Computed example of a mutant assay.
Amino acid sequence: MSNNKVWLVTGASKGLGLTLVKQLLNEGHQVAATSRNLDDLSKAVNYTGNEFLPLAVDLKSEESVAEAIKKTVDWFGKIDVVVNNAGYGQAGGLEELSDEEARGNFEVNVFGSLNIIRHALPHLRSQKSGHIFNIASIGGFTGAFPAFGIYCATKFAVAGFTESLATEVAPFGIKATVVYPGYFRTNFLTSDSLGLPKNPIAAYQNVREVQQAHENAINGNQPGDPEKAIQVIMQMAAEPEAPVHLFLGQDAYDLAYQKMEVIKNDLEKWKPVITSTGFDHAG
């Protein structure tokens, strides 16, 4: 039964998206995959057969997204699993990044996913089934990374709307999961996937250090195995009770607990002040 699923995967020409598409096809699933460049996608996947539908899509264009969803349903007859994977990292301190740079990151990472969701949901609702995976990042749960404030903000947004989405679509038999990967050894930190600030400010040494560490020391040495990450996502797509929050990697697990400890400590330290704001009903 699971081998009859139709998957729609965005950002499929590289990284986790490409690994997912290859593994899905290898295991007999039907896959519609999107990328900005059709040639790059077709070459990267290197699969000929009716089970694979490569699509050139501009996620920032509702018309382009709507056309891709229609082609997928016309080709396969349905969509079972949507994976909003497309996105890019944007480095730079908040003061450094221009309005254009910040909005550009939101356009792809947030509004691109919303375009896909908006146009896929009518089909999922009509069939009363489906699962939407929105790929965030551990940076969508903890923002304690100098140089990645805007990127983290986009991924916090993804996490937030996925929580709401899960409650909204549950009555239709549809599931939604936000995925928080830690560091996985893909090309995510290479120049074509990581935007750098056009106007860096010399005073921000901590921002430069973290940015350069991601470009150099971390890139190529990430602890996570993309193949294993994909196996977890595929397993969750088959689970009747899949989680709304799916963390991937020991590093993501550890960072999530660090964040929760910070919140817990802030809550308890300031509890008398936090809880002092109600109306006084005495007398």
Rank of each mutant, 00 (worst) to 15 (best):
N3M: 12
N4K: 15
G15L: 07
L18I: 00
L25E: 00
H29I: 00
Q30H: 14
L38E: 05
L41S: 05
K43S: 11
G49C: 08
N50Q: 14
E51Q: 14
L55E: 07
V65E: 05
E67I: 00
A68K: 11
K71I: 01
V73I: 13
K78N: 02
G93L: 03
L97R: 07
E101A: 13
A102Y: 00
G104Y: 09
G104E: 05
N105C: 15
F111L: 09
N115Q: 11
I116F: 03
P122A: 05
S129A: 15
G130Q: 09
H131V: 01
G139L: 10
G139M: 10
F141T: 05
T142K: 04
A147S: 15
Y151P: 01
A153Q: 04
A157C: 09
F161E: 10
T162H: 06
T167F: 10
F172D: 14
I174L: 03
A176P: 10
V178Q: 10
Y180D: 03
T186V: 08
F188S: 10
N199H: 15
N206Q: 14
E209F: 01
E209R: 14
Q211F: 00
Q212N: 15
N216F: 07
N216D: 13
G224Q: 12
D225Q: 14
I230G: 10
I233F: 05
A238Y: 02
E239M: 13
A242N: 09
L246E: 01
G249E: 05
Q258C: 01
V262F: 09
I263F: 11
I263L: 14
K264W: 08
N265H: 11
N265M: 04
L267K: 11
E268N: 12
D280P: 01
